[in-house]
Amino acid sequence: MPQFDFTNVFWPQLFWLALFFIVLYFGIVRLTLPRLGKVMDERAAKIDGDLEAARAAKESADELTERYRAELEKSRDEARSNIAAAKAEAAKASEVRLARADAESAAQIEAAEARIADASAKAHGSLRGVAVEGAQAIVAKLTGSEPSADAVSSAVDAAMAR
């Protein structure tokens, strides 16, 4: 194997390996990697910061949502109580109006009843007159003699009393 022919293979390779490795380490890697490392650290810091900001934003959003929900609940309660109050008020108002209308119609009914009673009384009165006149005319037609007004009226009274 040529690899074990150390007299020809050892020093030339070792010398150039050492030289190239020194160049690689100090001339390439030490010059470039730290720059990259700095950027990568910056990026990690930025990502962490952004994540932190996002977390904070989410927290505040959550808080806002909570507050919104609480406010919504409160206004809903308020609205409910407002509705209940309005309903009660409306009920009371309609009750009052109903009562007033009741009273009004009762008065009207009373007046109408009074008028009816009046009319019926008047009608009764005129009925008596008509009956008396009728009876007088009938008696005059039948007997030919005019009965006295008193007799006829008393007879009509007696008949109406029956």
């Binding site: 030339p12 150039w16 390996l17 390439i28 470039t32 700095k38």
Partner: peptide, 29 residues
């Protein structure tokens, strides 16, 4: 004996490839 051999040549090529890879990759981080 520190002759420049084919082994050294390919080490140098590897070094050049790494140099290009590293310097281009980190030119403007």
């Amino acid at each position: 004996d520190i002759s420049f051999t084919n082994s050294a040549l390919w080490m140098a090529i590897a070094l050049g490839a790494i140099a290009i890879f590293m310097f281009v990759g980190t030119a403007k981080p």
